[in-house]
Write a protein that binds this DNA or RNA. Sequence first.
RNA 1: CGAGGUGAACAGGCGGUUGCGUGGCGCGAGCCAUGAGGAAAGUCCGGGCACCACAGAGCAAGGGUGCCGGCUAACGGCCGGCGGAGGCGACUCCAGGGAGAGUGCAACAGAAAGAAACCGCCAGGCUUCCUUCACGGAGCCAGGUAAGGAUGGAAAGGCGAGGUAAGAGCUCACCCGCGGGACUGGUAACUUUCCCGCGCUGUAAACCCCACCCGGUGCAAGAUGCAGGGGGCCAGACGGCUGCUCGCCGCAGUCCCCCGGGAUCGCUGGAGCCAUCCGGUGACGGAUGGCCUGGAUAGAUGACCGCCCAAUACAGAACCCGGCUUAUGGUCACGCUCGCGCG
RNA 2: GGCUCCGUUGUCUAGAGGCCUAGGACGCCGCCCUCUCAAGGCGGAAACACGGGUUCGAAUCCCGUCGGAGCUG
Length: 114
Amino acid sequence: MEKQYRLKKNRAFQYVYRRGHSVACRDLVMLCAKGRELKVGFSVSKKVGNAVTRNKVKRRLRECFRPYLGDVKTGLYVIVARPSAAEATFQSLQRDIRYLLKKQAALKEGNRAE
RNA sequence: CGAGGUGAACAGGCGGUUGCGUGGCGCGAGCCAUGAGGAAAGUCCGGGCACCACAGAGCAAGGGUGCCGGCUAACGGCCGGCGGAGGCGACUCCAGGGAGAGUGCAACAGAAAGAAACCGCCAGGCUUCCUUCACGGAGCCAGGUAAGGAUGGAAAGGCGAGGUAAGAGCUCACCCGCGGGACUGGUAACUUUCCCGCGCUGUAAACCCCACCCGGUGCAAGAUGCAGGGGGCCAGACGGCUGCUCGCCGCAGUCCCCCGGGAUCGCUGGAGCCAUCCGGUGACGGAUGGCCUGGAUAGAUGACCGCCCAAUACAGAACCCGGCUUAUGGUCACGCUCGCGCG
RNA sequence: GGCUCCGUUGUCUAGAGGCCUAGGACGCCGCCCUCUCAAGGCGGAAACACGGGUUCGAAUCCCGUCGGAGCUG
């Protein structure tokens, strides 16, 4: 996932937290706000675990989101990991991302049928 | 065989597909190289570096350290000794100066907590009892005495003999402890032996005294500017208030300052790592040769597999080094210890 | 990243070497009162974050872990 797609500044996160629409499942929360560009940010708090497990969760989430970069509508996305995400496997995180994107109706029309 | 002790290295490796950071090459698609730890952690110490203050050092406050010698850039670290404590032992641990400067504290218990006479013991005087004296008993008075006594963590060195009215280091022998001096060994801490004096409670991780060390803030330090903001200046091309002059405002010019938003630098080659040899008991030092080994900025190592395999645990750089402490997996070495069994 | 502070019953707290077997308030449990509940009265359970050290003796002093707040940005 390249730099241009990343959500960076804290104020941008705050904007998404205020204005975004949220959907959730057991391990993750996804917030989405409208925007001209596609930006994705990940938030993994200290409640999830120590630095090693936080990094691992973040890397897995980035890898899960990567295949959808071309298929997702533009906007600002923030994905928050809940503490239970530390125990989740890569496959279950993949299922959660797919489920949340569908629930958010964020996929472009052409890929809906897939 | 079991239970320990000490020390050391390692922290999976190789190969695919795909993805990320940095560097190089290329117009470009892309290709090549490289990419977390022994603790990166806690932030407990010591430095480098940067800015501020003082630009001389001293004093005060506050904080820290505390046997001796050495190592080191420095340290509260390390090495080697000394002393003490623990353990059958290998060995381990110790904030290990000063209580012969002063102040404080020592609950409860106990007569009494460095100050002592409650009980007891003892000779004396007076009264009294036993028919009287003596001996003896009881009471009172004013004394002597720390040998004995509930206690306590701790009770005024210990034991024996002499001595005494009763006693007491009051005296003596031996032992113990403390201080001083001389001597042996040692650079020193300390120690061997002897002499003299003393018998003093514990506590300084209570205040304190003594010796030594420490200016403060920390890379989000700091530097350069871009956007922006503020102020001054002159006279002028321009616009507006107005048709003209003066005046004012804006814009432009130039100088200075601020700079929180953004950018670049700081940013990684260093008290560096490896090998051999030499000096040293050792920490470590020296010489020679070789090597280049993260630099991100919402923060780079992931996903799916195959083989070897016991291959897992603790755990992720954020300016950089030297330590300490804590977390943690299995492995190895020992001409280290103890116990059991067999020969 | 850096700095500062704090951990005592379920909650808020008192404590400053021995008086602590740790006190108080709210809450909880039981009994009394009442036709019942509330209020009231009586009684009870319940804590020094953890591990070492100093001391005769530690919630208190020292060291190290663990946890939680706050400041800076």
